[in-house]
Amino acid sequence: MRMLLRRLSLYVVTAWVAITANFILPRLMPGNPVETLIGQLQGRVSPQQVRAIQLAFGMGLKQNIVQQYFGYLGQLMHGHLGVSITLSAPVSSILRSAVPWTVGLIGVSTILSFLVGTIAGTMLGWTRGSRFDSLIPLTTFFQAVPYFFLGTVMLLIFGSNLHWFPVLGAYSSNLNPGWSWAFVFSLIRYGELPVLTIVLSSVAGWMLGMRNMMITMVAEDFVLMAVAKGLPRRKVIMHAARNAVLPSVANLSLAIGLVVSGALLVELVFNYPGVGNLLLQAVLNEDYPLIQGIFLVITMTVLAANLLADVMYFVLDPRTRTEAAV
């Protein structure tokens, strides 16, 4: 239990750091971003928007920095992330419609990638020295390709030219979102290529990690014992894999951050209506309240996913459950 509590407190601290960085960063930057921004948006901004910008930077308020900070924290507590400059809507409501897409896309891709990579790594580690080993350099190539580039190539080949997959958007524009079979089917069809892109880019990491751990585990006595017990091969492999997967699960929480970073751009390529696409629009429009809101929401979601991964590790490794362990 202590291990989980320690992780939880780490995430609380991390969340606080992210929130505070969000507050300090605009105030650290040279020049006065508010003036610059209002200047850039000359004539296109209403007084309310100017007010929104000033609020986002804590300026134009007759408060010192400490008061501003606590005011900012108070706003966050109530779920207020400010108002988007370009979209003239509360950031929180904009995000509410975008977050499910991203969580769905990245969640499904990460789970698939982890499963496929772990199973492939198990087999590669067990049959080490077989001709499948020569596939390893190829997988590192996919790992090294930027997600957005791979997405673009996949889009070009399988979407635009071969028309194997529908692309651009999250579902067919002829359908209304809802729980109909046609919509769910369309959702899956449109999701295939983005998911495939993310899985291809991230699977090599899981695969190699698992392969190396399998090789290490197979040299352990308990795996030899499993053979000596006359267990079928499948069960012997499971003995090794059950232990070899632990470092992968421990790394899961770290990897989520990386996958999220890459996947955000995949949304851009496939014009997926998620947070990534929103973030890029916000960056292009210099919509600072939106950028900040997105950053916070992504960070919080990643931290929650991390905690989930930690709970999984806790369940899988009995040694974390007993404090008396050597």
Partner: peptide
């Protein structure tokens, strides 16, 4: 490690 790198990078860079 826990803060996702790219979003942070984008935030810093956008300023």
């Amino acid at each position: 490690l826990a803060i996702p790198g790219l979003p942070l990078l984008i935030v810093i860079d956008s300023y």
